[in-house]
């Protein structure tokens, strides 16, 4: 478990990997808004093309990209089924006397929904999880949310907790493995038996793991105190984030894209969402 990689970060060198993580969070939000702006065939076509462009620009292999879609397969199938069978419209495709009523509008709606969901997932995973490490994401969130400090929301503390959690994931997973081996050496069995029996077998792992996690927490707190930690006040940072011109260009491009979608929506062509 030494080589555990948390999150889905895929190391590569692309424009998105080099981008400021704050800019990527903003881009992700803008893109989500864009997917909901789409109303008709043309705008959805533009959305699909833009998503494909993102995939190409991110230099992430398609195989890995598709992996992020697997968890939403069920949602995709489910929503398209609902849309196909439940939409009533003017153009019935199945014969009148069939019990199954499918309308042309239903098919369009289903297609649009699927496109919307797929583009949503693809874009957020490209902007956030695939090209940004969890640590820089935490860092960026702290920076972006720092205005909230004024209304007494402990933004720095949350970011600190997140960083420490990320720091200790590999340590604790190693420890879990060690405890499991120790229990196995004494005849514990985690792999056979009913679900209930297997869950019960985990208790002797969880108890020592929790005890050790608390001990670690206490020691870490002492060590942090020794290193003069006193909250976010007056702290400086070694690696400060810097926006670059390209970050602003990307944000402007995406805003332009949104405006473009709005114009495309006004063109009447084939079908538009009601």
């Amino acid at each position: 478990m030494k080589g555990i990689s948390f999150g889905q970060y895929y190391p590569a060198s692309s424009v998105f990997h080099r981008m400021d993580p704050r800019a990527k969070i903003i881009l992700a939000v803008l893109y989500i808004v864009s997917t909901f702006l789409c109303k008709n065939v043309l705008s959805f076509a533009a959305l699909t093309i833009s998503a494909l462009l993102l995939v190409i620009l991110s230099r992430i292999p398609l195989r890995i990209m598709l992996r992020s879609l697997r968890p939403i397969l069920f949602i995709v199938v489910f929503t398209s089924a609902i849309n196909i069978f439940a939409t009533r419209g003017a153009h019935r495709l199945t014969p009148e006397h069939w019990w199954l009523a499918i309308y042309e509008e239903g098919l369009w709606n289903a297609l649009f929904m699927v496109l919307r969901i797929v583009c949503l997932i693809l874009s957020t995973s490209i902007f956030l999880t695939y090209t940004t490490t969890p640590v820089s994401l935490a860092n960026a969130l702290e920076r972006l949310l720092s205005p909230l400090k004024r209304i007494k929301i402990p933004v720095h503390d949350f970011a600190m907790m997140m960083t420490i959690a990320l720091r200790f994931i590999p340590t604790l997973s190693e420890e879990t493995e060690k405890i499991m081996n120790a229990q196995k050496a004494r005849g514990a069995n985690f792999t056979t038996g009913s679900l209930f029996a297997r869950a019960k077998a985990l208790i002797p792992i969880l108890v020592p793991l929790f005890v050790s996690a608390f001990n670690r927490a206490f020691e870490l707190a002492t060590a942090m105190e020794c290193r003069c930690y006193h909250g976010g006040e007056g702290r400086t940072q070694l690696n400060v984030l810097h926006y670059r011109a390209s970050d602003f260009v990307a944000i402007l491009l995406l805003v332009g894209f949104g405006v473009g979608l709005w114009f495309l929506n006004r063109v009447d062509f084939l079908y538009r969402l009601g």
Binding site: I164, R167, E219, A223, R227
Partner: peptide, 13 residues
């Protein structure tokens, strides 16, 4: 101060 367990005094990733 440097403590006994190296894992429990490193904060950053």
């Amino acid at each position: 101060m440097v403590f006994q367990n190296p894992d429990n005094q490193l904060v950053a990733t």
